[in-house]
Design a protein around this nucleic acid. Sequence first.
DNA 1: TATTGTTATACTCTATAACTATA
DNA 2: TATAGTTATAGAGTATAACAATA
Lengths: 138, 138
Amino acid sequence: MDRPELGFLLSRLMREVMAREKPILEAAGLEMWDYAVLTALADSAAPTQAQLAATTGRDKTRLIGNLDRLEAEGMVARRPDPADRRNRIVSLTPAGSRVLRRCREAIEAMETELLADLDPADRAGFERALTSLAETDR
Amino acid sequence: MDRPELGFLLSRLMREVMAREKPILEAAGLEMWDYAVLTALADSAAPTQAQLAATTGRDKTRLIGNLDRLEAEGMVARRPDPADRRNRIVSLTPAGSRVLRRCREAIEAMETELLADLDPADRAGFERALTSLAETDR
DNA sequence: TATTGTTATACTCTATAACTATA
DNA sequence: TATAGTTATAGAGTATAACAATA
């Protein structure tokens, strides 16, 4: 194998992807982590804050600031869990869903453009390999 | 296309790669950025600190702490540029080269294992696509 | 006593602006 | 004056521990 190291290549690509996402999220008034939280909320139904922290990989104490802001802007709602009032159930509001959908579309378009110049077979292999490598449980 | 977003996949994989590199670098007494600096020094000959900062993507003011430590441990040397004494030329010492080589071998082995389960065609496409996408000038 | 969410504190990392020595 | 390297300062991000409410 004769290529730069994975860490080097990944960090460069990560920087590029983040640079392209930044204006999209800024236009929606979101920070990077806000977006990760909204995405997780769309995928899993009615998680507690602890579950949300686990799925996003964010520390539970740092998650709080994001939720405070998102709640203040009406994108998420927190309500106590009737079954265990220590928990707070987080959910997307309709406004949050709209913002999330707009960002997703813009980001998908950005990704399509980013990958456009690749050889189609390489691109397919890249996506399959990346998906496999990013599996949580290893 | 039906997969999670690039940013999500890349950050997960990045976290996994860093977790696997950490013990290797710790055993060599290196921080992540130290290793990036040593790698850059092996590739490009006798850069000034400003050039080194540019190639590694690290801010010149933050680079200084790494160089101070690496120099104190005898892995790099700084000498004034005779042609322009404002510059300081950074170079690998033999000890630095040895540490770097050991880390490189261990990291290459780690990467081989990380990618071992992939379909060979996907793996080749992944490496080609990633190399292409990580090009600096875009 | 243990757990969820929260707050407080200290620590690290980063960004920015000065400062020095050379040019 | 402009630049390379350095230092200093303030801000953001992070980790850790304590705290209140509930189980």
